[in-house]
Design a binder for these strands. Structure first.
Length: 437
DNA sequence: CAGTGTTTATTTTGGA
DNA sequence: TCCAAAATAAACACTG
């Protein structure tokens, strides 16, 4: 079975990594439980599709001062956040408690009741009443972080693992990093091809499709007006459909993190690995794909409608750099991190945090973006670092679906920025984070 | 031999 | 309806 546990590309300083894995989600839960806080602060808008990591490309992080009305609506939609999530992802898993596995079709009813935030138009459905964590019958629209967050995948035919391997192999932007000799285990890690990153940095990408999430212009301007002065932090990202602001607390944590990690210079993947920055959601295959007779129907498993894709390259560009068939939506992830679409405000620059570091996609190690060989300007590089950090942080702490309220994030396209910047728990290098949990 | 990675083929889906 | 992209399935080679 494909284990989405934290792999350990650079095992120095860590043993028994699987046992030491601390999930960011769990940490977030714990914090929530301890503080009794709810996600009324910063928020992130994202698509409901994680199959395409486009959610990351499209998310809109709104500053720490969410308009009261929006907060109220969020609370209404989310219910009690962080209040009743099971301590273990497996808790509450009916299948794990003996419920037979019978993956089935998602019912229309399961997707029918959508309650997006007014003004935020999510294209497509958003099942706010589906508890993916405990419902083994309904396939979530996401393909990663998978086994722990989505009951469906714990019991579904593991062929999806093959799909992931397929994507990693197929997409040129991922290159395999072999294990070190003394490193036990099979297989290697995956990293982002620096060339690919380079191109992204150079801004040579075009969107081929429109993002599926759009914010009502009226609301957008309202939010803009609301956030601009007070929430304009060191990482106030604005542009296009994206508005990202970091509240002061997050800024503080960010600085603390920089101080603790030495920021960008001489980034050491070994060090970073112990931090949230060292781990990205990664797919580490732990079980081979099983072969089976072709089904009468290839879609025995229920399929959630796919959201739109967001390939990065134009046809010409693809020709230029070679085939990118199956350009997997990791592209979108990269794109969001690298493209100018998430351009920074001209405010106080945020220190590059993960410059030249590896981005570990959980075991699949997304390695250092090499310094742009071209003329990518420094500011842009800095932007990338910040954004990548944000993306990484977010991936570290994917919306905890074990929480009914938070699962509604997907519906409302809103995520607490505190999750995004749950740095405190990551500062201890001995703490390993499993972004997939 | 099991796990991992690559490749090809087919199906599904959404946009034009 | 067509096409492109993504998902899925499967075969096969490689490796520890």
């Amino acid at each position: 079975m494909l284990s989405l546990s934290c792999a350990d590309p650079w095992p120095e300083g860590s043993v028994g990594l699987e046992e030491e894995v601390v999930t960011a989600a769990a940490q977030a839960e714990q914090r929530d439980a301890e503080s009794g806080s709810s996600d009324s602060g910063s928020s992130v808008s994202l698509d409901d599709s994680l199959t395409s990591l486009q959610w990351l490309q499209e998310f809109s992080i709104l500053g720490g001062n969410v308009p009261q009305r929006v907060q109220q609506q969020q609370q209404h939609l989310f219910g009690q956040l962080g209040s009743d999530a099971p301590a273990s992802p497996l808790a509450g898993d009916p299948a794990s408690m003996g419920t037979p596995l019978t993956p089935g079709k998602p019912t229309a009813a399961a997707y029918s009741r959508l309650q997006p935030l007014p003004g935020i138009v999510a294209h497509g459905h958003c099942p706010d009443d589906v508890d993916y964590k405990t419902n083994p019958r309904i396939k979530p629209p996401y393909s990663y972080w998978i086994t722990d967050n989505y009951c469906y995948y714990r019991h579904a035919d593991p062929t999806w693992q093959n799909s992931i391997r397929h994507n990693l192999s197929l997409n040129k932007c991922f290159i395999k990093v072999p294990r070190q000799k003394d490193e036990p285990g099979k297989g290697g890690f995956w990293k982002i091809d620096p060339q690919y990153a380079d191109r992204l940095l150079s801004g040579a990408y075009k969107k081929r499709r429109m993002p599926p999430v759009q914010i009502n212009p009226a609301l957008q301007s309202r939010l803009k007006a609301n956030f601009q002065p007070q929430s304009r932090g060191p990482c106030s990202l604005t542009g296009g459909q994206i508005s990202l602001c970091i509240n002061p607390e997050s800024q503080r944590l960010l600085r603390e993190f920089e101080e603790a990690t030495g920021a960008d210079q001489n980034w050491d993947p070994h060090l970073a690995e112990g931090t949230m920055l060292g781990s990205w959601p990664v797919v580490r295959g732990r079980g081979g794909h099983k072969r089976k007779q072709s089904h009468g129907s290839r879609n025995g498993a229920a399929k959630a409608p796919r959201r739109s894709s967001s390939p990065l390259l134009s046809v010409d560009e693809q020709k230029e750099i070679g085939p990118l068939k199956g350009d997997f939506d990791w592209d979108a992830l990269l794109d969001s991190a690298l493209s100018g679409e998430l351009s920074l405000d001209e405010g106080e620059p945020l220190s590059p945090i993960i410059k030249d570091e590896d981005l570990t996609v959980q075991g699949t190690h997304i390695s250092p973006m090499e310094a742009p060989t071209g003329t990518a300007d420094i500011q842009r590089s800095s932007d990338f670092d910040e954004e990548t950090f944000l993306a990484t942080a977010f991936l570290e702490s994917p919306w905890p679906e074990e929480d009914q309220g938070r699962s509604d994030f997907l519906c409302s396209s809103t995520v607490n920025l505190d999750q995004l910047f749950s740095l405190e728990d990551s500062l201890d290098p001995s703490t390993r984070i499993d972004p997939l949990l």
